[in-house]
Each structure stands twice: as structure tokens, then as C-alpha cells.
Simulated scan of single mutants.
Amino acid sequence: MEKVNFSRSAITLEEEVREIIGQPHELIVKKSIPFLDEHCKKMISVSPIFFLATANGEGKCDVSPRGDLPGTISILNKHQLVIPDRPGNRRLDSIINILSNPNVGLVFLIPGLEEVLRINGRATIIKDEKILDKMSLKGKTPLLGIGIDVEECYIHCPRALKESNIWNTSTWQKSEDLPLILEVFNDHLKINGVELKK
């Protein structure tokens, strides 16, 4: 199929979108709070996985899944939290983006719960040993942390997770029907001219 020229039917103004979709209910607007209350703190403390959205100075976006033991995110106070940057593949997509654009979004998931917690704020890459030492895992202290100044928190309705049946194991694909990740990895390397020796 040929590439579609999206600009032919593009909507470029919020007024146009609102004319089609309408306005949110007052309760939806007012559920957003500018700090971490006890409910937000509890949700963060029991969440083993979240997604971190960043963009660089040019606006190019990235979303990174972050998994850790529940309770390893440090909540400093009702306005700030710190995410440990655990060893990974060293791409540093999120870190590099934050250096040029501090605006971030986070979505926290809790297994079995269909609502998610969304947090928006501004991030700073930190190397404060006093903070990072408290975030050690298996005897290893993170080299860096991502400090978040919280600007907005709210729970997101359960529709996406409910409709996807994500927590219902009976709907999961059989392992033999799933993509072979090593095959995907090797094929993507080939597209970039790299072929691993067998």
C-alpha cells in the first residue's frame, strides 16, 4: 500500500476537534491535582511497572517501559519523586531527551487494576548520592536518578485496560503464536546492514 498523505484530511485546530468530540465533563477536568496525595503515593508504591514519555528539544518523542520492585521509586515529598536509572542497554533515550526538554509524562500500572495513575511534570537528571544510596537494589546503587517535579496527577479511566482484557490470562496469546524476539532483533539488524555470525 502506498503511503497515505495524512495532510489531505488533517485537523489542525483544537476548535475543529472539539466540534467533533465535544468538551470533557467537569468531573474529568477537576480530577486532576497538582501534587501527590496519599492515594497517588500508595499507587506508586505498589506499582511494579510504569511508562516514561519524553521528547527531545525538537519534539521527537520516546516512551520507555520501566520495571522495578514496587516501592523502589523514592517519594521525597508531595511535589517530588525520584526514579532510579537502573543499568540497561545504554541507549539513554529518556536521559538524553530530558537534557534538552525536561517535560515528562508517566503512566503507572498495577497488576489487576484497570485504572492507571498518570503524572506529568518536569524532570532533572541527578547524581545525588544521598538520595541514590537509598535506592540500591541487590547491593547496586543507581549511577543516576530522574528527579520529577510533579505538576499534575490523575487517575485514568479503566476503558483501555478493560477493553484489552490485559489482566485476563485466558485472553493471552499462546507462547507459540508470539513473535520470536531473537528473530525480530536479527531481522532488524539486517535492515541496518548488520548480520550476526551463527
Score class of each variant (00 low, 15 high):
G57T: 00
G59E: 01
G59S: 04
G59D: 00
G59Y: 05
G59N: 08
K60Y: 09
K60C: 01
K60Q: 03
C61P: 00
C61I: 10
C61W: 03
C61M: 11
C61Y: 00
C61V: 09
V63Y: 06
V63N: 09
V63M: 13
V63D: 05
V63G: 02
V63P: 00
V63H: 10
S64T: 11
P65H: 09
P65V: 14
P65C: 14
P65R: 12
P65W: 06
R66Q: 13
G67W: 11
G67L: 09
G67K: 12
G67S: 15
D68P: 01
L69P: 08
L69Q: 15
L69T: 13
L69V: 15
P70N: 11
P70W: 10
P70A: 10
P70R: 10
G71F: 14
G71V: 14
T72N: 15
T72S: 15
I73M: 13
I73H: 02
I73N: 09
I73K: 05
I73C: 10
S74W: 11
S74D: 10
S74Y: 12
I75K: 12
I75G: 04
L76R: 11
L76E: 14
L76W: 08
L76H: 09
L76S: 07
N77S: 15
N77D: 15
K78G: 08
K78Q: 14
K78V: 01
H79E: 10
H79T: 11
H79D: 13
H79C: 10
H79V: 06
Q80P: 07
L81C: 03
L81M: 15
L81T: 01
L81R: 01
I83Q: 08
I83P: 01
P84L: 12
D85C: 04
D85K: 00
D85L: 07
D85F: 01
D85T: 05
P87Q: 12
P87G: 03
P87C: 10
P87Y: 05
P87M: 06
P87S: 05
P87V: 11
P87N: 11
P87R: 01
N89D: 13
N89E: 12
N89M: 08
N89Q: 14
R90F: 14
R90I: 07
R91D: 11
L92Q: 05
L92C: 08
D93S: 11
D93F: 12
D93C: 09
D93E: 14
D93V: 06
S94D: 05
I95Y: 09
I95R: 03
I96A: 04
I96N: 05
I96V: 14
N97Q: 00
I98T: 00
I98C: 03
L99M: 11
L99V: 04
L99Q: 02
N101Q: 03
N101R: 02
P102H: 01
P102L: 01
N103L: 02
V104T: 04
G105M: 06
G105V: 04
G105H: 05
G105K: 04
G105S: 04
G105T: 07
V107D: 03
V107C: 15
V107K: 11
V107G: 13
V107T: 15
F108L: 11
F108N: 08
